[in-house]
Each structure stands twice: as structure tokens, then as C-alpha cells.
Write a protein that binds this DNA or RNA. Sequence first.
DNA 1: TGGCTTACCGCATCGGATGCAAAAATACAA
DNA 2: TTGTATTTTTGCATCCGATGCGGTAAGCCA
Lengths: 206, 206
Amino acid sequence: MEETRRERKKRQTRHLLIQAAVRLFTEQGYEQTTGAQIAAAADVSTKTFFNYFPSKEDVLFADAERYYGLALEVIADRAPDDTVPQVLRRCFDRAIGRYLAQGMWAEEPEMAEIHQRLLATVPSVQAKALHVMLGAQRRIADALLKAFPDRLDPISAAAATGAFMGAVQAAGLAGVEMYGESEQDYLAAMGRAADIVIRGLDSLTG
Amino acid sequence: MEETRRERKKRQTRHLLIQAAVRLFTEQGYEQTTGAQIAAAADVSTKTFFNYFPSKEDVLFADAERYYGLALEVIADRAPDDTVPQVLRRCFDRAIGRYLAQGMWAEEPEMAEIHQRLLATVPSVQAKALHVMLGAQRRIADALLKAFPDRLDPISAAAATGAFMGAVQAAGLAGVEMYGESEQDYLAAMGRAADIVIRGLDSLTG
DNA sequence: TGGCTTACCGCATCGGATGCAAAAATACAA
DNA sequence: TTGTATTTTTGCATCCGATGCGGTAAGCCA
């Protein structure tokens, strides 16, 4: 399927907006940067910026779906004898794998650094991240429930997913706050959190 | 220590604002209600409303600190031979206990119903709730770490807290979505989530 | 070419939120 | 009671994020 000119331009504009945003956030800070400035830097109207991104925060979560979608794929592609914890663990590993392979931002590598700094410091960005995660959590719990109808019920599916993602998220944040921005260290922290919670969930579903 | 007139009036105004807000939210919906309307209904200036509550969402989380503070108390009052999971479980039980004893809103019982409905439906309220929870999570993890310096490190403390609160939160939301607003049912759902994650964490710290 | 869809734009407008300085209310001490 | 310091309230201007609308341009397809 060939990419039409329209689609190409759309992709370009989107990319341009993200780049402009990251540059401005880096140069003058997140809160000091207005949507109008980003639009101007990308040479489009303010309105267009909000056409692409429903809110200023959304610029920072443009790729988030790709990561959460990965989890849904992993669940769909499970082996017949997989257990719930095994699948969750694989979700985590695959996400980390992709992260290491291509960075958090396949197309905007400069995003990675600013992203985690803002995540650790700007309240509205934190809140947005949690909310995006919540949405993903629901879909993942749903998929898990469908994948293991005999081992899970809606509540335990939600609990398991919430425990897993809550632990990883908290450990990741703690890691960033402890180790500054040493990538290795906080990835390791998230890995330990995954270990802990996976081991715990083993007792649930064997 | 006697309560001065100033403090008393301040408390009254605050209470008045909350009441007005709840009434308007109920009557005409959250998003349809403006801060100015709430202020007008409480007969204070718009500015005063934002003096009391830094954002419109905050009206709905006026009492949240009381609940999270409970957890910190429980941790502080632990017995010498308590384990981490035991303490976490007690945090949960005490919170539920208080909830059952006096409702979510000691002084504004009418708040309970509207609160959970908005929590389940309004995105910005959800995001705010998660963010408030994140703040509490950090303080709780910190307190846990100080309470069990030999059994925990910063990462495992964050992971355990994140897993626990993530599970309970997810199960609670799932419960509300499943059972509508049948209080018993989703409290039970949260209880099951707590069970699951507590049992899991047993394998961590014995 | 011509007609259709889609993206972009400017503009008006709204609501949330902040800063500031004046005015009112309160506390407190002489 | 009066005077003074502190705190609260208020109005106002202002900023920014975000939405709705109607018109224009760009790309698409026949």
C-alpha cells in the first residue's frame, strides 16, 4: 500500500510539530512554552497544533500507544501453556527490548531525555502519563481476561494488571529520582519491580 | 487550643464551597459547572474559590489526605514483628474501616456518590486522582523504607507500594464499572485485589 | 477538467488559573 | 477603645489551553 501525498504531508507536519515542541521544551522549559509558539516554530497555525494533539501534553505521548500495543500483541500471541505471570513478564521484556533497540522514540531520539525529565518534574505531565497508563491498563486487563477466561475473572485480571503496571511505574519513577538519568540503572530498577510482582503473582495463577 | 474566629470562618467558607460545588456538579454536571458559578453559589469571589482550591478538580479531593495519612499512621504504629505485607494489609483495612464508619466524606456525605461517578467518567478527574495517589504512594513508600530498612531498599519499597496501590485502584475502578455503584460489591473487589497482591508480596519479604 | 474529501486556517470565544494591589476582616496589644 | 500588624477577600487585568465555526486551499480520483 503506497503512501499518498496527503498522508506523507500529514506525517511530516506531525513530525515537525513534535520536533519543534521538543526543541522549545528543551530551550525554555515546558511550562514556558505555549502551544502557539510550537505551532509558530513549525510554521502552522495554532489551531492546527491542537488538531494534531488534543492537548499540549499529548505531544509527549505520541508514541505511547506503540508500547502499550506491544503488550496486546504479546497477549494475543501467547503459547497455549503460558501462565498469566509468564505473559506479563514477556510483555515487559518485549517493551524493554524495543526500547533498547530503537529508543523510546523511534523517530525522535532527542525526545527520550526531555521526556523523562518532564515526567519526573512537571505535574501535569505526570498526571497525563498516569492517565494514559490507566487507559492501557484497562485494555490489557481486558485482553488478559479474554486470554485466560478459566484462570481469571474481571477483578483478578484488573488487580494483576494494576499490580504489575503500578509496580513497574513506581519503581521506574523511583529509579529516575535516585539515579538521575542513568538509563541502565532505572531500567534495572523496573526489572526488579517486575521480578517482585511476577513472583508474587505466581502464587495466584500457578 | 480554641478555634479562632478566623479559622472558623475559613472552615465554613471551605465547607460552603464544597457543598456548592457538589450541588452544582450533581445538578448540571462537572464540565458544565464553572469555577465562577461555584464561587457565586457560595457567595464569594471567583478568586477566592481558587484561593481555597488550586484547581477545580481539587474540590473533589479535599479529604483525600485524611485517607492517605491513615496509611502513614499505620506504618508508624506498627508492631516490632510486623511484616511489610501485614502492615500494608492493615493500611487497607483501616482505610476501609474508616470509610464504612463515616463514609468517604466525613463532613460532606453527599459527596460520596457524585465522587465515584465523576471518578469513573470524567477524564480530568481520573487523571487528578491518579496524580494524588502517586504523591501518596511516594510518601508511603518512603515511610515503609524507613520502617523496614533491613528488609527493603528504595526500589523494592516503591515496587511493593506501587503494586499494592495499583492493584487496589484498578480493581476498584473495575468494580465500579462492573457493579455500577453498589458499594458492597466494589469494596469486595478491592478487598480481593488486596488479598491477591498481599499474598504475592509475602514471597518477597516473608 | 471538475467535483469530492480532507486538511488548514483565522477568528471569536470560553473557562481555568495567576498576579497584583487595594480593601475588608480579624487578631492582638497598649 | 484605639491603633497596628496580619490575614483574607476581592476585583481586575491577563495569560494560556482548548473548542467551534466557516471559509479557503490542497490533495484525490474519476
